[in-house]
Write a protein that binds this DNA or RNA. Structure first.
Length: 593
RNA sequence: CGGGGCGUGGCUCAGCCUGGUAGAGCGCUCGGUUCGGGACCGAGAGGUCGGAGGUUCGAAUCCUCUCGCCCCGACCA
């Protein structure tokens, strides 16, 4: 491909509204352009990488018998009403009407459509299991799109759905997909981790997310340094700690401490003074949060969460513990009216119609402080088991880096940041039951199919690859997804000898099966071409110039190591093959870790 | 949704406070000189100053409304 004909405009300066590396580099390299908030044009270079990644996904899924199909982007409301998600799904679902007034939406995911397809086409257990996938544009009207392709509103996703006769078979397929995903991300040459994650409100199911590790990742991950336990911090088990040692419990002293006008847990603790105390240690204080949860049957309930003063609440754990579908903090004004105290002085003692959850690190703790539900005052001497009748103890706090892993009891948690690029999820019969997707078993009995679903963010993964592979000069593409593999720089296109050698090399490399971008643009200084080549970041740069040819040599440079080899033009193909083989070997050895 | 910021040529920005013929650099076109890490000279093309309304003899500039984009927040109960 001749670069003079390629649709590309590289930018020397970083566009103003690009705030992460992948977005900055992709915009500067002329790969993407923003069309609207969270909506991008994919120009030829970006599209080549996207297609290469899609192809890797296809190949690995087809090895496991998955079938590719394509579903519509526009979906009728009827299907979503059947599954119950038309009313449940929030504003992320972009809804609109056609000219006849019929309700439609842009698909953010395709459980409803695939379930409809299968229920209309599959009747017998003999046709199961079946695993179907598509690679397609999705639309989610995100509250706040940001980070370029990493959190766009429109994006390309591989979404797969499997259908089974029973739980055991769905579980089997779950691990088949788990391993397929490991193969897929390994082939990219990126560092990634499968991570245990929160499965949301669909009880009893389990799920793994696949994260590409990168400092700019939106998700926090904790990984044990001794065992395999790796999880999203939303879900990471926190070790149970004893708060207060074995001191003797005294009675609850109401309104004992007075800290008028002081807000903030740390400041309040420091201000708790009496004859024996000049400030309380944080671990002897407690904090309190009020939530309103909503259950599947739309009933609601108030939850009060009690934690040690130096711990953070994990709302996902609270929500899951009570089995709620949805949860929100009680608005401040409402909470102040409800407890009768200003923010900072609310507490669990004496509240009616609230289910109290106490973090298990406070199990056995005594003599704590807590908000008195009277502005400016705190009780002293709280013993949760004694003073909060009917309370439940549970793990509802955030685990922290450096804590002992409760799974193996040996290792400590290490923190990573990750970009979620894939998820495998066991759905169960949520959709098949509500939408009547059933089969007849060997006895002629009808039963709902058990489903799994499996997603990979295609465009997000391409961005994540860049987040992990760049330097001060530009992108460093791993071989398997590079838009082109060799950037052939013709430094003197006006010189007929140079031009002849360069054109010959382009043809020879292409004949050997390589993808070559030939920079034969006239009137550009060599420096400008080198800068562009570094920015675009193809794995190999071949250079042909008058200066080199005088000595009978051309050059090949490794983008990542910057190592340069010089040799006669006729050796170019062999050198590229050698370099390619070396890179692919290194990639395999990296093994994805 | 709340708070803050920004909309001026393809990109980065100046001009606005204090109203008076719309600017710079990069990029683009043409000519010439250069030619191994973003060269130089000369000549050009390209802008409803986000949009609407208002104030004024006169608005990129002041006022009102509106649209778009970006950032922070929506965990110390």
């Amino acid at each position: 491909m001749k670069q003079s004909k390629l649709l590309i405009q590289t930018l020397r300066e970083t566009p103003k509204d690009a705030d992460v590396v992948s977005q900055q580099l992709m915009m500067r390299a002329g790969m993407i352009m923003k069309l609207a908030a969270g909506i991008y044009d994919y120009l030829p270079l970006a599209f080549r990488s996207i297609r290469k990644f899609e192809q890797i996904v296809r190949e690995e899924l087809e090895k496991d018998g998955c079938q590719e199909l394509l579903m519509p982007t526009v979906q009728p409301a009827e299907l979503w009403q059947e599954s119950g998600r038309w009313s449940f799904y929030g504003k992320e679902l972009l809804r609109f009407q056609d000219r006849k007034g019929g309700d439609f939406c842009l698909g953010p995911t395709h459980e409803e459509v695939i379930t409809d397809i299968v229920r209309r086409n599959v009747r017998s257990y003999k046709q199961l299991p079946m695993n179907l996938f598509q690679i397609q544009g999705k639309f989610r009207d995100e509250i706040r799109p940001r980070f370029g392709l990493m959190r766009g509103r429109e994006f390309t996703m591989k979404d797969g759905y499997s259908f089974h006769v029973d739980d055991a078979d769905a579980d089997r397929e779950y691990w088949v997909m788990f391993n397929a995903y490991k193969r897929i991300f390994s082939r990219l040459g990126v560092k990634f981790r499968p991570v245990e994650a929160d499965s949301g409100a669909i009880g009893g199911s389990f799920t793994h997310e696949f994260h590409v590790l990168a400092g700019s990742g939106e998700d926090a991950i904790l990984s044990c340094d001794a065992c395999d336990y790796t999880s999203n911090i939303e879900k990471t088990e926190a070790p149970a700690l004893c708060a207060a040692g074995d001191e003797k419990a005294f009675e609850l002293k109401r309104d004992h401490f007075c800290t008028p006008g002081v807000v903030g847990q740390v400041e309040q603790a420091a201000g708790m003074k009496d004859a024996e105390h000049d400030g309380m240690p944080l671990a002897h204080t407690s904090k309190f949060f009020l939530y309103r949860v909503t259950f599947a049957d739309e009933s609601t309930k108030l939850i009060g969460a009690v934690l040690r003063g130096d711990h953070e609440v994990n709302p996902v754990k609270v929500k899951n513990f009570v089995g709620a579908m949805d949860m929100e903090m009680m608005p401040l004004e409402e909470a102040e009216t409800f407890t009768g105290a200003k923010s900072g002085f609310m507490g669990p003692v004496g509240l009616k119609n609230v289910q109290i959850l106490v973090d298990r690190s406070l199990q056995g703790a005594v003599n704590l402080t807590c908000g008195a539900n009277r502005t400016d005052y705190h009780h002293f001497g709280l013993d949760p088991a004694r003073d909060l009748p009917g309370c439940a103890f549970a793990d509802i706090r955030m685990a922290v880096e450096g804590e002992l892993c409760p799974r193996c009891g040996k290792g400590r948690y290490q923190a990573f940041r990750g970009i979620e690029v894939g998820q495998v999820f066991k759905l169960g019969i949520k959709y098949s039951k509500s939408m009547g997707c059933t089969y007849l078993d060997a006895e002629g009995k009808e039963a709902p199919m058990v489903m799994g679903c499996y997603g990979i963010g295609i465009t997000r993964t391409v961005a994540a690859i860049i987040e992990q592979n760049y330097d001060a000069d530009g992108i460093i593409w791993p071989w398997p997804v590079a838009p082109y593999q060799v950037h052939l720089l013709n430094l003197d296109p006006a010189n007929s000898e140079v031009n002849e050698v360069a054109t010959k090399l382009e043809k020879a490399l292409e004949a050997a099966g390589f993808e070559v971008l030939h920079d034969e643009r006239e009137g550009l200084s060599p420096g400008a071409k080198f800068k562009d080549a570094d920015l675009l970041g193809f794995p190999l740069r071949a250079t042909v110039g008058a200066k080199g040819l005088k000595e009978g040599i051309v050059e090949l440079r490794d983008r990542r190591t910057k190592e340069v080899r010089k040799f006669k033009p006729e050796h170019m193909v062999a050198e590229v093959i050698t370099a390619r083989d070396r890179m692919m070997l290194e990639l395999q050895e990296a093994g994805g870790r």
